[in-house]
């Protein structure tokens, strides 16, 4: 009687191997999600033709993402500009160059704070709402119902939101910067009593339209694409439960903030190196 080969040993991984396997699985999962996100982005672009044709849909999203964010953007811009005015004056007056306050306020707002802070505010004000809305549509199977009616949810729901956010973001950043410059003016000229002519002329001498203002607009456009992409993707990819939607919303805000700041480093290094 031939000796039966011993039954294969059940493959029980040791604790170290389990860790490593878990890590690999996690990495693969993340990689897969990134790939899906990239595919999703391309799909949005492919289906945005319909969104552009039915511009009313995009208008509704501009209203939601842009118009309703106006107050928070304007007021925060004003406050940030005021703080810049106060702090900048404190520092500059030590070197006897308080007249350069306009330059300091305008350059920091137009180059950095305008695009970055307004994108952060936009992510928490509009991005989280987009995720929650789309996530809830998915959880209540509205997206599936649309597909049943041969309506592509990417074209009807996602693309208009995406373009609404992308169009709104640069405008919001510009409004933020403008309000900030006015805030700096209120503090520097009206409260502290610097010369108004010096405030504006120093600013105009230092701020270049193409190198500073236009680069700021490009930055905010890139942030707009990144934030709305993350927001609609997290919503679309959310687990269709109450918990899943809440997690997706949190992830939108956290990921957007990180991505905005990381992109800002890259863009700043590209745009303002050596000047």
């Amino acid at each position: 009687m031939p000796v039966a080969s011993p039954p294969p040993k059940p493959d029980v991984p040791g604790p170290v191997r389990a860790r490593v396997e878990g890590l690999g699985e996690w990495a693969l999962l993340k990689l897969e999600r990134l790939g899906f996100a990239a595919r999703f982005f391309l799909a949005i672009l492919r289906f945005s033709g319909l969104g552009i044709r039915r511009f009313g849909l995009v208008m509704r999203e501009i209203h939601f993402a842009g118009v309703l964010s106006l107050v928070i953007i304007g007021v925060s811009g004003l406050f940030v500009g005021m703080v810049l005015g106060l702090q900048g004056y404190e520092t500059l007056v030590r070197y006897g160059s308080a007249e350069a306050l306009g330059t300091l306020v305008a350059l920091s707002l137009v180059r950095e704070l305008g695009p970055v802070v307004s994108a952060l505010l936009f992510a928490s004000r509009a991005g989280s709402a987009m995720t929650a809305e789309i996530g809830l549509m998915k959880a209540t199977e509205q997206l599936a119902a649309m597909e049943m009616m041969a309506v592509e949810p990417l074209a009807r729901v996602v693309a208009p939101r995406f373009w609404g956010g992308v169009i709104s973001m640069p405008l919001l950043a510009a409004i933020f910067s403008a309000c900030g410059i006015l805030g700096g003016y209120l503090i520097g000229v009206v409260t502290i009593g610097l010369d108004a002519g010096a405030y504006w002329s120093q600013m105009q001498a230092a701020v270049d339209f193409r190198d500073d203002v236009l680069n700021g607009v490009i930055k905010s456009f890139v942030f707009g694409v990144a934030v709305t992409w993350i927001a609609v993707f997290e919503g679309y990819d959310a687990a269709p439960t109450a918990e899943g939607v809440s997690r997706a919303t949190t992830r939108t805000v956290v990921t957007s903030a990180l991505v905005i700041l990381a992109l800002d480093v890259l863009l700043t290094a590209l745009m303002f190196r050596g000047t």
Partner: peptide, 17 residues
Amino acid sequence: FVIIGIGALAFLALRAA
């Protein structure tokens, strides 16, 4: 909103820069 946004851009372009 669009008017205000473009106005802000124009302000940045003409008044700040």
